[in-house]
Simulated assay, not measured.
Amino acid sequence: MDLTAWTTPVAPLTTTGANRVRYLAGRFFAVGGFHRVYSSRDGVTWAGGETGPKISGVWGSHRDIAWNGRCFVVVGSLGRVYVSRELETWERASIPGATDVTGPLMYCCAFGAGRFVAGSGDGKFYHSTDGLTWETAPAPSGWPAQYPPSIYDIAFVDGRFLAACSLGYFAASSDGLTWEGVRDGQTTEASPVLLGRGLRVLRAGSYGPAGTNPALRLGTINPWPATLPTPMQRTVSTTRMDTRLRRETQSGRIEVRRFGSGAPAQADVTFRCLGNQATALLTFHRDACRNGARWFTAPWLPLLGFPAHAARFFTPPQRAGRGDLYSDYTTTLLVRGIEEVL
């Protein structure tokens, strides 16, 4: 196979789509909407069905699947977990704190070191030895407490779990219980692994919905689409973060030191969207920018006082107002120099 000619899979996979594709136990597995799990031996002909009934009037979406040699584990919306040995009958489990109608979105799962590990959209890691009973792992060292990053992908590489997260964060663990977090550009014990082979594995792996442009990899800087609006100048508010650290010594002397590039600047902006621009803006945030995980360049950044800079979404665009012909969406952007994010 030369990866130059592609064949569209036949139904039922094309009916509901797939959020993730994995190769496990000699077969391809795809998980998607409506509690669907599909399998295929050749990647062209797919079979599968539901893993669970409609629960409390809410349909769920599966996000990832893992295999430990004995059973399959599927994770998805509302903190739901499904376990099966033969892919015919499924037993439902849940992460701590999840109910029939509330729970975090579980983006990913993997197996290694004798246990399943899963990551959620609210920045928490969970672990289980059998897929049925789950516990919450302590927050990784170096993890921001106020806005923990979403955990988008997990892989078990060279004896360690590696996780790719939003806001430029990664995490590593040898056992799935104790995690070390690191942000791109930082130096910690985990960095050689995270920024070495393990990071390349995550970059080359499935990262988002099936069918995503393969050129849009983790770390890619995307251009701002010409069809999207520019921020409304009168609503822009920027905060430039200081890169200096000030301290007073015992002798009373004041020392001021600069610590690298410091934190990114922040910009609160509002976009006035006409017609289908609102849908295009939300799609750009979700797909091209991976919910804030990827940077973008825009011709209007210099107008905000940021020449040669890139930005990414710190908060999802939220509708703040609506007229007969337009909708206003507000968001907070993180802004850094181009050379700092390449």
Rank of each mutant, 00 (worst) to 15 (best):
D2N: 11
L3G: 03
L3Q: 06
T4F: 14
T8I: 12
R22P: 08
Y23H: 10
F29A: 02
G32E: 06
P53N: 07
K54I: 13
R63L: 00
A66H: 01
G76R: 05
Y82L: 06
W90T: 05
R92A: 12
I95G: 07
A98T: 03
V101A: 13
G103M: 02
C108M: 06
G114W: 04
S120L: 02
F125L: 04
H127D: 04
G131P: 06
L132E: 04
E135W: 03
A155E: 15
F161W: 01
L162G: 06
C165W: 00
C165I: 00
G168H: 02
G168N: 01
F170W: 06
F170S: 09
G176W: 02
R183F: 05
T188V: 07
A190N: 15
P192Q: 03
G198W: 03
S206I: 11
Y207M: 09
P209I: 11
A210C: 07
P214F: 13
T220K: 03
N222T: 14
L228V: 07
P229Y: 15
R234V: 15
V236R: 04
T239D: 11
E248N: 13
Q250R: 10
R253I: 05
V256F: 01
F259W: 08
F271V: 03
R272C: 14
R286G: 05
C289W: 03
T297N: 13
P299W: 05
W300Y: 03
P302E: 05
P302S: 07
A311M: 06
F314Q: 10
T315M: 03
G323I: 10
L333N: 08
L334M: 15
G337E: 13
G337P: 02
